[in-house]
Design a protein around this nucleic acid. Structure first.
Lengths: 116, 116
DNA sequence: CGGAATCCTCAGCGATACTG
DNA sequence: CAGTATCGCTGAGGATTCCG
C-alpha cells in the first residue's frame, strides 16, 4: 500500500539522519560496537558535543543501543540496533554516490541550455 | 581500489546532497522533467529562494539539466541528467528507511542499558 | 513565469571549560 | 572515560520585494 517512493517518507528519513555526522556515525558503527573515544578517534573532526548529541538522537530513533559498564573508569559501548544495521545498504549506496560525484566535477557537456 | 564503504565518500555525498530539500528535489524529478512552478506545487513548503538555490547547486553538481524556452512567458524545464537518474536507488532506499523509522517510534525494548 | 536581491532568524555546529 | 554546561558563530533557510 505504498507507491514505490513516498516523498513524505524521504523527508522523514532526512529529519532523522540529516546533519553532517549522523550517517557517518552509523557508518562507523557498521563494523561493530565501539566506545565513545573510539568513535572520536575515527571521526577526528567531530566535536565531543556533537558526537554526544547525535548519538543521543540515533538512540532516540531506535537505531543505536547504548550500554554502560559501571567500572572504573566507566566504559560505555555503542552499537547499532537491528534497525540500525538495516541502514547498511543506504550507507553503502551513499558511499558509491559520493565516489561518482567526484569524477563528475568536470561536467560532461556543460549545463544550461537555451532551446527554441 | 576502494574498501567497500569509504567514510570520506559518504561525507562527500552529504556535502552535495545534504540540506532539507535537495534529495526531495531529486525525488520529485525522478518521474520526468518539470517546470519551476510545477516543482513548487509539489513541494509546497520550500521557499522560492531555496528552490532556486538548490536547483542551481544540483545543476553545478551535474545532476540536473536546465533548459530555457524563450517564449512569452518564458518556460524553464528541469530534468535529471544521467548521473541524476543514477540517484534513484538512493532515493528509494531513503524512502523505505523513512517508512520503517515511523513504526520504530515505539521502541522495542527501551534503549539504554546498564550492564555489569 | 521564473527568477534575483535584500534582509532577517534560528538551529546546527564548534570551542572551551568543568565534572562524576 | 565519558560526558554536561555555556557561549558564540555562521550559514542554511524563510519572508518579502522587485524585475525582464
Amino acid at each position: 500500500m505504498k507507491e514505490s517512493v513516498s516523498g513524505c517518507h524521504v523527508e522523514d528519513a532526512i529529519r532523522v539522519l540529516g546533519g553532517r555526522w549522523r550517517i557517518v556515525l552509523v557508518y562507523s558503527l557498521l563494523d561493530g560496537p565501539k566506545r565513545f573515544n573510539e568513535l572520536r578517534r575515527e571521526m577526528p573532526k567531530i566535536s565531543q558535543r556533537m558526537l554526544t548529541l547525535d548519538l543521543r538522537a540515533l538512540e532516540a530513533a531506535g537505531l543505536v543501543f547504548r550500554t554502560i559498564y559501571p567500572e572504573v573508569p566507566v566504559r560505555v559501548v555503542y552499537e547499532l540496533t537491528q534497525a540500525g544495521h538495516a541502514l547498511r545498504p543506504l550507507v553503502e549506496i551513499l558511499g558509491d554516490v559520493g565516489e561518482s560525484l567526484q569524477h563528475l566535477a568536470p561536467s560532461p557537456v556543460r549545463n544550461g541550455a537555451v532551446a527554441g
